[in-house]
Amino acid sequence: MAQIIEARAVSKRFRQHRRFPGFLGALKTLVTAEYTEIEAVTDVSFAIAQGEAVGYLGPNGAGKSTMIKMMTGILVPSAGDLTVLGRVPHRERQANAREIGVVFGQRSQLWWDLPVRDSFELHREIYGIPRPRFDENLKSLSSLLDLEPFLERAVRQLSLGQRMRAEIVMALLHDPKILFLDEPTIGLDVVAKDAVRKFLSRVNRERGTTIILTTHDLQDIEEICPRLIMVDHSRLIFDGETAKLRTALGSARRLMLEFAADPGPLELKSARLTSDDGLRKHYLLERDDISLVHVLDEIGDTTALKDISIEEPNIEEVIRTFYQRRNAELPPR
């Protein structure tokens, strides 16, 4: 598969005019030109192939949006090479723009005062979409996301969920090869989130549109993106299959054994005992190559065993434990 996005050691620094606190400080700010540098993206490299769906994850201020803005050509990288569909985005911004679609969860691209349909029509003019293709896309996309009931309504009269669905449809009207979504489900209710996720998966599957998505909602990533890129403090810390994140970050699976009669204390080599309620014993499976078979082998006589369960920690838990551990290790910045 061809790589359509390649980032090699991309960095982005912002210069911020230094402000001094207090009233005298404010006057000082007026005449000084001191700057502090903020590193938003540091030395990030990855490659994304056509047709992938990639989740770009990280806490607030980790540099997710900055990366999206560089890939869409809005911001210029301070260092490193970045190509999207073979182009340097900021140098060929308009050519790049024709082939990508972008949705910002916190920023509307629709025309506030115009009916949704008129916004779409302007979009058609801007991108020069041939009429038949436009009509076909509008029809199929808006029926998938149930836009018909409010196509004629002014954007300012829409609910957030309706507006978001309209934003996503608009971003796809010109058949972009890549769809960038920056927190597309932010502020949406459960039903709307679900509709958006199902729709995006389908677009990725059926239209082959490459999807790059940033979010705080891990469920978005689990449902849409088989691949995950995780950043923290401006650096890349994980790039791989979403399912493998747990292993990479070293989170343990949980094992629970329930007995008909209390067998007494039961220490295992394959799993670490965390709590013992007599009949129920909880363990952590810290190594990934240990399976249930190993555990049962070790117990030997399983006649007293009533129930057994292994729980995969959900992605949210994995990431939470990762951040907690990291915060304990790192001095606060």
Binding site: K69, T72, G73, I74, R93, Q94, A95, A97, R98, I100, V102, F104, R107, S108, Q109, I126, Y127
Partner: peptide, 12 residues
């Protein structure tokens, strides 16, 4: 407001 970003996304 940062809406200039939205503008830079368009081929216009």
């Amino acid at each position: 407001t940062g809406d200039v970003a939205v503008w830079l996304l368009k081929p216009a």
